[in-house]
Amino acid sequence: MILEVQHETFLEYSEPVTESVAEVRMEPVSDDDQSCCSFHLAIGPQTPMFRYTDGFGNRVHHYTLVPPHAQTRVLAASVVETHPKPRDLASSRATYPLNLDTADLEVLGFLQMRGPVRHTPLLQPLLAAVRPSNGMRISDFVLQVCHYINGHFTYAKAVTAASSPIDDVLEKGKGVCQDFAHLMIAVLRSYGIPARYVSGYIHRANKESQSHAWCEVWLPDRGWIGFDPTHDQVVTETFVKVAFGRDFTDVTPNRGIYRGQATETISVRVATRALEKLPKLSWQEQLPTLDVPLTTVLCNTNHLDDHSDEQVDRQQQQQQQQ
């Protein structure tokens, strides 16, 4: 399937800010399951863009905007051909418990509870509800976990936050795709099954497109396979994978910091469309120019921003002495 994705982020500040420093993870990966045919990124106000590959192999773009500005617009456009390899879960022979002593290093880094995917007493009832028996096929178990989470948690926006640990979704019973993915990862890792977090997009015909998150599970004889607990399914050709990591904090699509006391309003627009063939002229060539004008104001030179002196003092002392 050939999918075209446009992802626009609009940041607006209640008053001009300076020294915005940001990095975005929006460039889709090319791997066994998909090929990224083209990717374009534009930012306004105009500023040089830099790129690096992070420790997981994700492509990261970053930029700075030093002069005062009251708004920033980031537009990412890509064309991706998805060609997922056959899943063939039915014939996977891996059984619980997994023996990982000789497993690939890549795999062993996705077993640890950390960040939002953390040990919490709230997880115990869920672990009691879904428990693999010895000799159970991992693929069956994973599908069971996926199904269970989908059935026992409600999809609802604005209940949890981007920085929420799994405690929040466990407590409230509601959350978004990110929480569902974290939850599934937590369960699998608790049973020694490697699982990682994926961010990307999902294309749904005649429905609003959106940024999405799911997880990938490692089966010794099948490699990494994507599961989407939000929709209770194995990922298909309608999923576009952008980045993966241990959890959300590794793959935040848009992360930034600015200097100033303004409040930031973020609006995001994602559009996807399926194409018959690889386009000659794609969205990015039709992109409107992104010249958000620079606002000319006096530099706000308040260095302390909204942090109190005591907070700074505390951090200064907190530095470990070796």
Binding site: E19, V21, E23, H62, G256, I257, V312, Q315, Q318, Q319
Partner: peptide, 22 residues
């Protein structure tokens, strides 16, 4: 002489006020 965690709020602890973003 600042720990990794506080070195860059963009990469590590986002609440660090001691580091240099980016």
């Amino acid at each position: 002489r600042i720990d990794d965690d506080f070195l860059d709020p963009l990469t590590f602890r986002s609440d660090s006020m001691l580091g240099v973003p980016g």
